[in-house]
Amino acid sequence: MTNATAGWLELCRACVGDIEAVLEELPTRTEREPVLRAGMGGDDTTAIDAAAEAAVVGRLEALGGDFTLVSEELGIRTFGGGGAVHVVVDPIDGSVNAKRGIRFFSLSLAVAEGPTLGDVVFGFVHDFGTGEEWVAERGGGAWLNGRPLDEPLPKESIEILSFEGTTTAYIAESAPALIGIAKRLRVMGSLALSLCHLAAGRVDAVCSLKPARSIDIAAAQLLVQERGLAIELFEDPPFAGGPLDLDGRSRVVAAATPALCEIVAAALQRN
């Protein structure tokens, strides 16, 4: 791991500690669920979202460097002189789970050398339920809890597929199209964590049922790619050209191979 990457990892770990403190200060739905405003990403900003983002932004401000921040609630902000570096943050990926007390949500932070998904050089995802730390460096590999991620890869047929970006209507519409393609479905509530689980071979495919935003996928997709797996924004390819902004332009699919991604994408596009 390079010195620059190690510095970002240290910052991310500090952010985890700050968010853990926020979770203790806002322990139940009563404190976490109130809606404060509309977020720049289009979703309601709840008390837990706002407090977690304030903690992360405070850490980033203290860096004193030049970068562009892309964040769930604040939107796009320039720090210092801006420049090529982009920091893409979702302080609480899986915020519905977080506010309801379901321990399956994460901090997702990516660092890029330019404005697209293909420019991402560092990805960090922390699972606040299990405490697992997922890290990837472009060209340098992927790690789980500080050790190289060398678990068995996903299967080349889909036993378990994770749906994300879900509502009851989306699931009812999409699930029938995948009969005969995926044996089992999981709906867990954090796209970043589902992609991490794919990278670890715990599931065999992941797809979002609504357009994915860069804040949801920028960090975890690097783990997927460093493991040699396939990922695509199948309604607006190519994946590497996806802008680091708050717009959702396409659903995302990821699996062991490009061929499997194409099969899942084709099935979803028939709906």
Results as ranks from 00 to 15, higher is better:
G139N: 12
K210P: 01
A219V: 12
K183P: 04
P237H: 08
R37F: 09
G146P: 07
A112G: 04
V85Y: 03
S250D: 07
E235P: 04
L117D: 01
A199Y: 04
A142K: 00
A256M: 05
Y170D: 07
G101R: 12
A6H: 10
G146N: 13
K99L: 09
L198A: 12
A240V: 14
W134S: 03
A218W: 02
F105H: 10
D90I: 14
V16G: 03
L178M: 08
A50C: 14
G7I: 15
V96L: 15
D44E: 13
A267E: 13
F105K: 01
A52Q: 08
E151W: 14
A220D: 11
A6S: 13
A200W: 07
T166Q: 03
P115C: 02
I263E: 15
T166R: 06
P176I: 09
N97A: 06
P91E: 03
R59Y: 13
A142W: 02
L63Y: 04
V22A: 09
A14F: 07
V16C: 03
G75L: 15
L9Y: 02
T168S: 10
I92S: 05
L198W: 06
S250M: 15
G201I: 06
F239V: 05
I76N: 07
A199S: 09
A175Q: 14
T257C: 07
P211F: 04
S190G: 08
G189L: 13
R13D: 10
A14D: 08
G80Q: 08
G75I: 12
E61T: 15
A84M: 05
G101V: 12
F67C: 05
A255H: 12
G7C: 09
E132Q: 15
V121A: 09
E151L: 14
M188R: 13
E226F: 05
G83E: 05
D245Y: 14
E33Q: 15
H86M: 06
E164K: 05
F105T: 02
G83R: 05
L222Q: 05
N145W: 10
A52H: 04
